[in-house]
């Protein structure tokens, strides 16, 4: 559940969080670039592990893709600096800058590294990659984007995220594709306002956090493991709640964020984007439900010799956060009454 507590890693986590803050709070594009670069370099020691082939490969791939994106970003901001006067907008430049940022966050036309890399990460690191690492590129994107381009990207993201995850059996890949799909919701909220983005991002990170920590504490990496394990029904139920919540079904917290986004998309006249998003979220829901079959079915095959027990402290934490996930929508609607 917890990240490893050696001081080396702690230092890099610190740098990781700080560099994002540098990036999103700097005044110039160059400062943003510096922040992104520090962020990249501090994440690599966190994911590389000399004992694990997969994670060192992942760190290499991560370095390559991210540095290409950073170089492009640097190149395009300098191009913008040279060619354009202050406050002059040029759509082709904005497309180029946006593309490099989209590559940074693993958005669709440049998403191929994302599921590959996440396959070699631990659950905690994939949580970081799916949540925190998205902040800096998305905030930078919100400064300067070409909305028609972003709309195309949103639709592509939602489709690719939904179709890509359909036939996967690895939980990490499924989460990666669902993250690509959720990226489209985040980009859609970015079209409207940053507050909305923060709202959606917080909700998404919360749900992802519960799931990643839950998978981490049980060492689950593939779908079939869910069926082998002999779990207490209460723990299985946590999966059910959180996945349905992430899929955006009504009684759960995940619906709340989607509801607000749909509401604002309709208010701001993006019905087509909204339609794509909700239809693709159905497909996403389909492969979430594949994961939670084992918790839906009371009588299913269990191997008796693999038994899972959670520590009380962990179980308490997961139950509490799942309770928030169930009742969050009820309590949060009180704010609007």
């Amino acid at each position: 559940m917890y990240p490893s507590l050696n001081s080396n890693k702690m230092f890099f986590y610190f740098i990781l969080f700080l560099s994002t803050l540098i990036s999103i709070s700097s005044n110039s594009w160059l400062g943003c670039w510096v922040g992104l670069e520090i962020n990249l370099l501090s994440f690599i020691p966190l994911i590389s592990n000399t004992n694990n082939m997969m994670s060192s490969e992942a760190s290499l791939k991560y370095f390559l893709t991210q540095s290409i994106a950073s170089i492009n970003f640097l190149f395009f901001i300098l191009l913008k600096l040279m060619w354009m006067k202050n406050f002059m907008l040029n759509n082709s430049i904005s497309i180029l800058i946006n593309s490099s940022l989209l590559m940074k966050m693993g958005s669709t036309p440049f998403h191929f590294w994302f599921p590959n890399i996440i396959e070699g990460l631990s659950w905690f690191n994939s949580f970081i990659l799916m949540s925190w690492q998205k902040i800096a590129p998305m905030i930078l994107l919100s400064y300067y984007f070409y909305s028609k381009f972003i709309i195309i990207i949103i639709i592509m993201n939602s489709i690719i995220g939904a179709i890509g995850g359909l036939n996967q059996s690895s939980l990490r890949k499924i989460m990666a594709f669902s993250s690509i799909n959720n990226l489209s919701w985040m980009l859609a909220s970015l079209l409207i306002s940053e507050n909305l983005w923060i709202f959606y991002f917080m909700m998404y990170s919360f749900l992802i956090m519960i799931l990643c920590l839950l998978f981490n504490s049980m060492n689950l990496f593939y779908i079939n493991q869910l069926f082998f394990f002999n779990m207490n029904y209460g723990i299985k139920f946590l999966f059910l709640i959180n996945f349905l919540s992430l899929g955006g079904l009504p009684p759960f917290l995940g619906f709340y964020s989607k509801w607000i986004i749909i509401n604002f998309l309709i208010f701001n006249n993006f019905p087509m984007v909204c339609f794509f998003l909700i239809m693709m979220s159905l497909i996403i829901l389909f492969f979430y439900i594949r994961i939670i079959y084992s918790s839906f079915l009371f009588n299913n095959l269990n191997l008796k010799w693999i038994s899972i027990k959670l520590k009380n402290k962990q179980l308490f934490f997961y139950t509490l956060s799942s309770l928030i996930s169930i009742f969050g929508i009820i309590f949060s609607t009180f704010f609007f009454m």
Partner: peptide, 23 residues
């Protein structure tokens, strides 16, 4: 799955319609 997806497939456009009306 049939129950869930038949109903969700058409009720999500209903959600859009409701927000459109709200607008």
């Amino acid at each position: 799955l049939y129950l869930l997806f038949y109903t969700l497939f058409v009720s999500l456009p209903l959600l859009m319609g409701i927000f459109y009306l709200y607008d």
